[in-house]
C-alpha cells in the first residue's frame, strides 16, 4: 500500500496519524512512534468499522467533539498491550514476602498494632494475573497472613481487561507457571481453560484508572506496596514522570514500589530512593517527604 491510497474509507494518511497520535497522547500519556504506525492503523480501522463510521475524519470528529458512545475507551482497549501471566517476574513476589512485608509490618508498629490493613496495589493489573498471583503467594507462603488484614487492589486503564480480570477465566499460557498443586487447589478446569476460584477473585478489588491522571489518582492513598510493572516503558518522558509522581502520592511514606525487571526509575524521576533487596532493586517513597 502506498501512502496515497485511500482505500475504502478507513485508511489513515500521515497527517491523520499525526493528529490522532497527538490527541491520544494528550488523553492517555501513551506515545506512539512512527514504527508503531502499522499496529495503530489496524486498531483504529477496527474501531472505525465497529462504531459504524464512514472514515477517519467523521470518526475522529465524533471522538473529539462529544464522546457519548465511549469511542475513546474502545480505542484505549484496542491500543494497549495487555500481555501478562501468573507469577511473572516471580522473584519480586519473593521479595515481597521475605523482605518487604516484614519491613512494612515493623515500620507500622508490628503485628497486632497495625492501624488498618496492609494495602497492596497492582497497577496496571491487565487481565488480573498479577494481583491474583499476589493473593495466591500470600495465602500459600506468607506466615503472617492469618494475623494481618491484607487488601489487594488491581487497576488498569482498559475496561476490557478489567472485565476479563473480573471473570478470571484463563488459558494454559496464562497459568503455565502455576505449580500443579496450586492449580488443583485454586482453579477449576473448564474445557481448555482454568477458572480461578471465587474466594481468590473476591479478595481482589478492581478499579479503572489512568495512572497519569493526577485527579483520579488522588483516590489511591496509603498503599504499603505498589507493583507498577511493564507499563512505564510505553510512556514518554513527561507522562512517565507524572505517573511516577502519582504513584508516589499513592504510597505511604516508606512504602515500596516494584517496577518491571527491565524498567528503572533512573531514567524517569529522582523522587524515590532505590533500595537493594536480595532479589533485586526496589524503590521506596522516602520517609519525611524528601530524599
Amino acid at each position: 500500500m502506498t501512502s496515497s491510497t485511500k482505500t475504502a474509507g478507513a485508511a489513515l494518511t500521515v497527517s491523520d496519524f499525526e493528529k490522532f497520535r497527538d490527541y491520544f497522547y494528550k488523553r492517555t500519556g501513551i506515545q506512539f512512534t512512527e514504527s508503531k504506525r502499522y499496529f495503530v492503523d489496524k486498531r483504529i480501522e477496527t474501531c472505525i468499522r465497529q462504531a459504524g463510521y464512514s472514515g477517519f475524519a467523521s470518526w475522529f470528529a465524533a471522538l473529539r467533539l462529544n464522546d457519548r458512545s465511549g469511542l475513546l475507551q474502545e480505542l484505549i482497549n484496542q491500543l494497549t498491550v495487555n500481555e501478562t501471566y501468573f507469577l511473572r517476574e516471580d522473584y519480586q513476589f519473593e521479595s515481597l514476602i521475605r523482605t518487604v512485608l516484614p519491613d512494612v509490618l515493623a515500620a507500622r508498629g508490628g503485628v497486632g498494632r497495625l492501624n488498618g490493613p496492609v494495602k497492596i496495589l497492582s497497577l496496571p493489573c491487565s487481565t488480573g494475573e498479577e494481583p491474583y498471583s499476589i493473593a495466591l503467594r500470600l495465602l500459600e507462603e506468607w506466615d503472617q497472613i492469618d494475623h494481618v488484614d491484607v487488601e489487594i487492589h488491581g487497576a488498569d486503564i482498559d475496561s476490557d481487561v478489567l472485565a476479563r480480570a473480573e471473570l478470571a477465566s484463563y488459558n494454559e499460557r496464562s497459568v503455565h507457571r502455576v505449580p500443579p498443586a496450586w492449580r488443583k487447589k485454586y482453579f477449576t478446569p473448564v474445557g481448555v481453560r482454568y477458572q480461578l476460584d471465587e474466594g481468590i477473585r473476591d479478595a481482589v478489588t478492581l478499579h479503572q484508572i489512568n495512572v497519569c491522571d493526577t485527579v483520579a489518582m488522588r483516590g489511591f492513598r496509603d498503599f504499603d506496596v505498589i507493583f507498577c510493572r511493564n507499563v512505564l516503558i510505553y510512556f514518554d518522558e513527561l507522562s512517565s514522570r507524572r505517573a511516577a509522581e502519582n504513584l508516589y502520592g499513592a504510597l505511604r511514606p516508606g512504602g515500596y514500589l516494584f517496577l518491571g525487571h527491565s524498567e528503572s526509575m533512573s531514567r524517569i524521576s529522582p523522587i524515590f530512593t532505590p533500595a537493594r533487596l536480595p532479589e533485586g532493586i526496589v524503590y521506596q517513597r522516602p520517609i519525611g517527604g524528601s530524599r
Binding site: 528503572s264 526509575m265 533512573s266 531514567r267 529522582p270 532505590p274 533500595a275 537493594r276 532493586i281
Partner: peptide, 10 residues
C-alpha cells in the same frame, strides 16, 4: 546519571 550510579552501586 546519578540515579543509575546509585542503582549500580547497590
Amino acid at each position: 546519571n546519578g540515579l543509575e550510579a546509585v542503582e549500580a552501586a547497590l
